[in-house]
């Protein structure tokens, strides 16, 4: 022991002989820091994007709200911004969004949940291996194609059942949108179910439970927050969907709760204005930013809710 301790100062007095590469570590250090800085900038670009979205929406809407009182925007029951007798009641557009989203979710949530439970707990290995990529492809189809399908395939089909159904309607658009959302709901729900540890399932089976009992009473409750997050993603997809509605539900603002009627949604209105040529800076131009802000606030609410749920769900296991 003592000899080692005595040896240390002796070594320290000798100038260390190191390789030249180590001697140049200062420049190397600077180079590393520069690279890190650029990588940081890339990552921070997501924050800039968010700020830019908020800045653009708020600044353009700000001009809009100086001319249109917020009260009219929220409570007026007409939306006629391009007429001489202009009204700016966002309720009209929101009703279209609400009805079409409700139809879509009535399709997507039950079917998506059943598919998730089936694939996670019931389906044989081969069925799952084939079905999952298929569903993924369903989610990869461009929405304009769904729009075409809704307008020219589903609507004529529905008109055979409901002869009075108009060519543009929220029902057909909503149903097709529901089919489009199924993969989002089913794949996230299924991931949540498969994340439920096997020993929980074994515990249930060991009590004499059947597959269905295990799936319904143990696996589904255990995966509940993940499933809820999947639903919320589905909701925000439905609210933000544009092309299916612009094509198949018409672009006529219509305050209605009836899915059998045509009606413009918030998103379809933005498309309609963008297709025309409104001068930059006109009030008509600014309405789309106000509508966009409303849309953003709705989806933001659901996204935050979903984020909180996912966080809770990660803690569970």
């Amino acid at each position: 022991m003592t000899s080692t301790v005595a040896g240390i100062p002796a070594i320290a007095t000798v100038p260390p002989i190191v390789s030249h590469r180590l001697a140049r570590r200062h420049t190397r250090h600077i180079k590393e820091r520069i690279i890190e800085f650029f990588l940081f900038l890339a990552a921070a670009s997501s924050v800039f994007t968010t700020f830019a979205i908020v800045y653009i929406l708020v600044s353009e809407s700000w001009v809009f709200f100086q001319q249109v009182p917020l009260r009219d925007f929220l409570f007026d029951t007409q939306w006629t911004p391009l007429f001489s007798d202009a009204h700016y009641g966002i309720m009209v557009l929101l009703s279209g969004t609400l009805v079409s989203s409700s139809v879509a979710l009535l399709v997507a949530i039950p079917l998506g949940t059943i598919i998730a439970i089936y694939l996670s707990e019931f389906a044989p290995f081969t069925v799952r291996e084939v079905a999952k990529p298929f569903l993924e492809l369903l989610g990869g189809v461009p929405t304009i194609i769904y729009g075409y399908f809704a307008l020219l395939f589903v609507t004529p089909l529905l008109q055979k059942i409901f002869p009075e159904l108009p060519g543009f309607n929220l029902l057909s658009a909503g149903m097709v949108m529901g089919i489009m959302i199924i993969p989002y709901v089913s794949s996230i729900s299924e991931d949540a179910m498969r994340a439920v540890p096997m020993n929980l399932r074994e515990g249930s089976y060991a009590m004499g439970a059947t597959r269905f009992q295990t799936a319904l009473r143990v696996v589904t409750p255990a995966a509940l927050s993940g499933i809820a997050a999947a639903y919320i993603l589905g909701i925000s997809r439905a609210v933000g969907e544009t092309m299916i509605l612009a094509v198949a539900a018409g672009m006529q603002p219509n305050l209605t709760w009836n899915p059998m009627e045509p009606a413009a949604t918030v998103t379809a209105y933005i498309v309609q204005v963008a297709l025309g040529d409104l001068p930059h800076g006109s009030i008509g131009y600014q309405t789309i930013f106000a509508a966009g802000l409303a849309l953003m606030l709705i989806t933001l609410f659901f996204n935050i809710l979903g984020h909180l749920l996912r966080k809770y769900y990660r803690q569970a296991y």
């Binding site: 020993n199 089976y205 060991a206 143990v218 255990a222 509940l224």
Partner: peptide, 15 residues
């Protein structure tokens, strides 16, 4: 399994 029950290595209470 209805006649023969089991307790596992790791406690696995249901949620």
């Amino acid at each position: 399994r209805m006649r023969i029950s089991m307790v596992f290595q790791k406690p696995n209470p249901f949620p």
